[in-house]
Amino acid sequence: MTSSDDFDRPWSDLDRPPLKAANLRGALVRPDGLWTSLDVVASTGSTNTDLAARADGLPEGAVLVAEEQTEGRGRLDRTWTAPARSGLFVSVLLKPGVPVHRWGWLPLLAGVAAASGVSKAAKVDVSLKWPNDLLVSVGGEERKTGGILAERAGDDGVVVGLGLNVSLGADELPVPTAGSLRLAGVEFPDRDPLLRAVLRSLEEWYGTWVRAGGDPVASGLQEAYELRCATLGRRVRAELPGERTLEGEAVSLDGDGRLVVATEGGGTEAVGAGDIVHLRT
């Protein structure tokens, strides 16, 4: 892991300036706030892996940001790669004092927070594909521009990681069906205000959820997620563990955050793990 405190030296790529770590700490790390530390490193394999390895020795609210990830991971063991300084690669350590059976809502909470923060800072519509992919419109098509991975860490922690494509051009996308804020029409996306907006939104949503004991209804989380979710009301195919598939209409979320799919036979099934494909009507 290569570290640097501020990255204030001149940079050759003027379109992708480095993050200003000192300014970010000054804006986000406060005695009465959630974020207790914020470090920016030049390059690492995975911010989630690095933060999880130190979870027991860190207080809640540690933030680790990388300018480049060489071994980034997404859901279902997928890789996440992007050029240096082309996106946000950030992980946070949370130690929620709520019943463990509510922890399954954390990835969805992070999705709501990230989508609302990015929408506000970049002035672009961001929706969610269940459970926590961030979607933008590129040429009238839904494209994934971000994803979230939450993992247990240490005795009482959860590391939540966000990868967001910011300035990637079409020739830099990991797959042709991916997207970026730049391709969605954000002409000069600035990562510093994006990161501040995402972390402030996450702090607000997390605080509300914890004060409600992790209850997704009392905290307003379930309603907010459903309003942003592009999956609900759509015909979907769920690719489930064991090479099983399920097709039907995504009709709701249950109390555990699982996607409820109405099948053609008239029944319903709650999907808690797997890959969801939006089918064209």
Rank of each mutant, 00 (worst) to 15 (best):
D50N: 14
G87P: 01
T47W: 12
V65Q: 10
A84W: 04
E71L: 14
A82M: 14
A66G: 03
P83Q: 05
V90T: 07
A82G: 09
D77M: 12
V92Y: 00
W80R: 12
V63R: 01
R54M: 10
T70Y: 11
T70L: 15
L64D: 01
A62Y: 05
N48W: 02
S46T: 00
T49M: 07
T70W: 14
G72E: 05
T81E: 13
W80I: 10
T47G: 04
S86K: 06
R73W: 14
A62T: 02
L88W: 00
R75K: 15
L64T: 06
V63K: 00
V65T: 02
A53R: 12
A84S: 05
P83F: 06
D77Y: 05
N48Y: 07
A84P: 06
N48L: 14
G61A: 08
T47H: 07
L51E: 00
V92F: 02
G57W: 06
D50T: 06
R75Y: 12
G61P: 04
E71S: 13
W80D: 01
N48Q: 15
S46W: 05
P59E: 10
P59F: 04
R54P: 13
D56Q: 14
E67P: 08
L64Y: 07
T79F: 05
V92I: 12
A82I: 01
A52S: 14
N48I: 01
R85A: 14
Q69I: 05
S86P: 06
A84H: 02
T49Y: 07
V92W: 01
A82P: 03
L58S: 13
V65G: 10
S91A: 04
S86F: 06
R85K: 10
G87F: 01
G87H: 05
